[in-house]
Design a protein around this nucleic acid. Sequence first.
DNA 1: CGTTAGCACTCTCGATGCTCGAGTGCTAAG
DNA 2: CTTAGCACTCGAGCATCGAGAGTGCTAACG
Lengths: 344, 344
Amino acid sequence: MGTELSERQGMILGLIIHEYVDTGEPIGSKALLSRYDIGVSSATIRNEMAALTRAGLLRQVHTSGGRMPTEEGYRFFVRGLLGETELPSDEKRLISHQFYQARADVDEWVRLAASVLAQQSQAAALVTAPHATRAIFKHIELIATHGRQVLLVLVLQGGEVRQHVLSLTEPVDQVRLSELAERINAAAHGRDADGVASLVPSFDTLGEEVLRLISDTLSRADALAAGEIHRDGLANVLEHPDFTHSDAARHALRLLDEQTFLQELLSRVLTPAIGNVQVVIGGEGAWDDLRDCSIVLARYGADGFATGALGVLGPTRMAYGRTISTVRYVSGLMSELVVDAFAT
Amino acid sequence: MGTELSERQGMILGLIIHEYVDTGEPIGSKALLSRYDIGVSSATIRNEMAALTRAGLLRQVHTSGGRMPTEEGYRFFVRGLLGETELPSDEKRLISHQFYQARADVDEWVRLAASVLAQQSQAAALVTAPHATRAIFKHIELIATHGRQVLLVLVLQGGEVRQHVLSLTEPVDQVRLSELAERINAAAHGRDADGVASLVPSFDTLGEEVLRLISDTLSRADALAAGEIHRDGLANVLEHPDFTHSDAARHALRLLDEQTFLQELLSRVLTPAIGNVQVVIGGEGAWDDLRDCSIVLARYGADGFATGALGVLGPTRMAYGRTISTVRYVSGLMSELVVDAFAT
DNA sequence: CGTTAGCACTCTCGATGCTCGAGTGCTAAG
DNA sequence: CTTAGCACTCGAGCATCGAGAGTGCTAACG
């Protein structure tokens, strides 16, 4: 587990991972030597490789094929990577420019973030919309559509909008609805789910029904996984050679199809601080369906105002350096945008 | 092309397609005979098969492997299918029951329709939200979020909601915004894009800005492909044996990833009458990327009120009967829901 | 004239056996 | 500690080959 590695062993592990990520084929001592300029002979490398294999960081799938990293090997490697990597500044500029152009619309940010992540990492990207950590009532609008159906439009502090159709027991005309909306707007402004619920006694049956719905919606909005998860780059998963000829891609895609799984996944990222990038390699035991997949995740936003999550799902054999720095950078940009928009 | 087929030839074509869709392997005269009870010998079937091959409805990939349908063969077969097929009534009941439970929320219909289509057809499903054929202003709400940013919530006749962030040149307080909203609501009620635009002269600079935005949004909403296309069952595409070991799936998924393509595709379905199911087999020349894929499409809704499109994208080797009847049935259900909700 | 039995022919698929190359661990010498 | 050398292992790739399935054609039959 926590075995110490010599500097040379670390370098060799890094080179093997680099090479393996690049080619997808196990590599042997001689081949490694021929491609990189290491100051030692192939026999020495063989010895080091044997040590790394004993430590559980490398493995060989058959006796006479080269070595490739184990999941544990990737983890070790990534641990060293988390602190350092950064995106080249020209790419940063390119990305931030795109975001600058789209600053008007929250949904546009989300789409853009997913698109950038998918593009850069050549894997599938997942992004949730920023979401108020504590949903606060700002405004409602009640609109008679027809008969006994009423459309409730609820605006939260920060600009999130929820809509809901309400089926009343008896028809009510628009004038009465508008009156009610005005009274509720005056009374409920700035309150949270409980605060709205406590207003019920001072309203009539109709008002009670509406208030309950608002309160429910607010408290449901408190949970992280309220909105849909925006996905992009699903096809990238298939393009990857590791997946095209195996059925691991089917697993991955099926997971990406299931909102419940994704929500569980993204909720995992709730714990660490904003801006910290998390990497989950090969399911890590807990997610059995994620064999052969890795996930790079981060939370963005501003604690106390609104947060969201974004991440990349790709093959275990992934360019971690690039992906981690992209996720970190995009999450930073999104945080800025959220602070701009939500912090009054 | 329009060659006449004898009844027996039609039957044999049907059997071959049935068998091929089931097993995925070409089938020969003897094997066909052994699995179905046809009143003739294998030699006769061979003759008929030769005729069907000459007519371009069957083909053999090598001399000594059985026959399989050509795209043209599928088309002929499907043409005969379009009129007749219907879903078993117990499945109908099951589906309609699900829809009944979800009648409150338009987005929920869309999700459900996609889920049902994906499930039943074991392929990828595409559904657009119902969409007013002519967008009519119903109501707006202007909400100051912070500084010079204003949230515009626009409700269309029928209950569709659009939101937009407006950056003003100077800060405006909520009271003035509410006043303006009230004036616009009174003046613009029931108008379309042009109608709203014609109101501009009677408002001040701020009002003008808002009215223009409303008018723009209304006219943009007139185009079909306004909303996002909801997708489901993408993983199904990969499960299919025809796709798992080929790169056709990559094509398909890449297409499903591209909104623009899908919108073009769904706009194709604008022409025919609501309820008519369209089947596009193997790209039909026009869509080159759709080799090996077929699409079953239908429009739903009510002309003059609101319409949407839904469909299924799957492998050319698809159970057309089942898929067509599912698409027809779901589109019928959606039409009913739309009529219920939109026709006042 | 449509149908059928028989036959010679074709072609794919899977199994078998082979060599070649890359890679390893070990040992002994520098 | 490093390195050269060596014996050994094992998978990928290629050629060969027989079995099985399917075809088209011809000639006989009702």
